[in-house]
Design a protein around this nucleic acid. Structure first.
Length: 380
RNA sequence: GUGGUUGUAGCUCAACUGGUUAGAGCAUCCGGUUGUGGCCCGGAAGGUUGCGGGUUCGAGUCCCGUCAGCCACC
């Protein structure tokens, strides 16, 4: 079997790297940003839009798809990719984060998690094995296991207890994964979710068992959930320093451009985040020269495009004034056009990073990015 | 012309028999959002209560006059 993970180039002056991940005849070049398609849709975008912005892989969500449309529907279609009409790779989140974010509706036991549907209140019970089965029905390319995410700041004992459950579930998950994917070709991959809050010994332990249990990569969970940026990056620095280098590292839920550059410097390969699409729907655009609020009055008559350095559909065609009008009028087209731009912006950053790593000038490129991005609002 | 009725923020409306600094929604302006519970969350600005008198310790509120809109009747 072809090695699924290959490091192509490591920057001379940082841990940033270019790697290739092969999964089910799909190749993902990292650093990669994955748009989020929680409910079988990157909100406001068609699969054609998703392809056009340069998406290699997207994230979807077991919890949401299980509740709606339901796994029978996805099975009938042969999986989420066929359902959505996309041939891009799909990574599925296990539902562990929903256990965390919908915590008022859930109860965790050592066997799994009881929760009420946020749609109709109906009771459900997720176990590690069931979540693996569900991802089989979704037929995604990269799977994750059920985990327990704790909010920061967390007491050491709380984080330790959550990690213990997570490890136990990870073990059950990968055993079940091996069993049910025995006859599937080509095989999907599965990532270990690394927990442990900001406690280094817990993070280390998590990485160790994640590796020993035979997972295909490390998904860093429990970060950007309430801790300060400094704590987040201290923890990340430690994790990426000691993480085995022969597997991909995925920072779950990171989407601020500066954060992505920083994490890449530390050696993170994969990112996903709702930020580019959610913020787009709330009128915020990411640009080379900083973020702009399209709803601000100064863009009302602005004939320039969102970002002069961007090559997306929106920036090739539409003025800020038009986007401002669409947003203020509540036109849904503004959601689509700004989402396209924001996702393209983040993907373009990863392309800029790869080029810089190839040329051993990641730090310089990072500084160039910062000096432009930190400028005050661009006014032409 | 006579009688009635209504004038409060840019808009639509609140404010018990007179009682702290006249409120809210929308619009406006400015932020926020990090493994998405689909137009979200937070903050700010904005008033000579149509105008002029009067009564009262105190008036958006009561009285008189006046202007404007609406309704009815001559």
């Amino acid at each position: 079997m072809k090695n699924y993970f290959k490091t192509i180039k490591i920057d001379k002056n940082s841990r940033s790297r270019i790697t290739e991940i092969y999964v089910r005849n799909k190749k993902i070049i990292t650093p990669v940003f994955m748009p989020v398609a929680t409910q079988a849709s990157v909100k406001a975008l068609s699969s054609q839009d998703i392809e056009e912005v340069g998406t290699q892989c997207m994230l979807s969500n077991t919890y949401h798809l299980y509740l709606r449309p339901g796994l029978e529907v996805l099975k009938k279609f042969g999986g989420l990719g066929n359902f959505m009409k996309t041939d891009k790779a799909i990574l599925t989140d296990s539902g562990g984060f929903q256990v965390y974010s919908l915590s008022n509706l859930r109860k965790i036991t050592e066997h799994g998690v009881h929760f009420s549907s946020h749609i109709d209140g109906s009771p459900h019970f997720f176990t590690p094995e069931k979540v693996i089965d569900y991802q089989s029905a979704i037929n995604s390319d990269i799977w994750t296991h059920l985990d327990v995410c704790v909010k920061n700041p967390a007491e050491y004992e709380e984080a330790k207890d959550a990690l213990k459950k997570t490890k136990n579930w990870a073990k059950k998950s990968i055993e079940h994964f091996k069993k049910i994917t025995q006859d599937i070709q080509p095989k999907p991959k599965i990532l270990a979710i690394i927990q442990g809050s900001v406690y280094k010994d817990l993070r280390k332990e998590s990485l160790e068992w994640g590796y020993e249990l035979g997972f295909d990569g490390f998904a860093l969970g429990g970060l950007s959930v309430g801790e300060t940026k400094q704590e987040m990056f201290e923890t990340l620095d430690y994790i990426t320093e000691i993480a085995p280098k022969d597997k991909p590292v995925y920072f779950m839920g990171l989407g601020d451009p500066i954060d992505i550059w920083t994490a890449t410097k530390y050696g993170v390969d994969m990112y996903d985040c709702v930020l580019p699409t959610r913020n787009a729907r709330n009128g915020q655009a990411l640009t080379t020269y900083g973020k702009i609020y399209i709803k601000n009055a100064c863009y009302k008559k602005d004939e320039s495009v969102l970002d002069p350095e961007c090559d997306c559909l929106t920036c090739k065609n539409y003025s800020r004034a038009y986007l401002s009008h669409l947003y203020k009028s509540g036109e849904l087209l503004s959601h689509r056009l700004i989402s396209i731009h924001n996702i393209r912006f983040l993907i373009r950053q990863t392309e800029i990073m790869r080029k810089a790593i190839e040329e051993d000038r990641f730090d310089d490129a990072f500084n160039e990015f910062l000096s432009k991005y930190n400028q005050t609002k661009l006014k032409i």
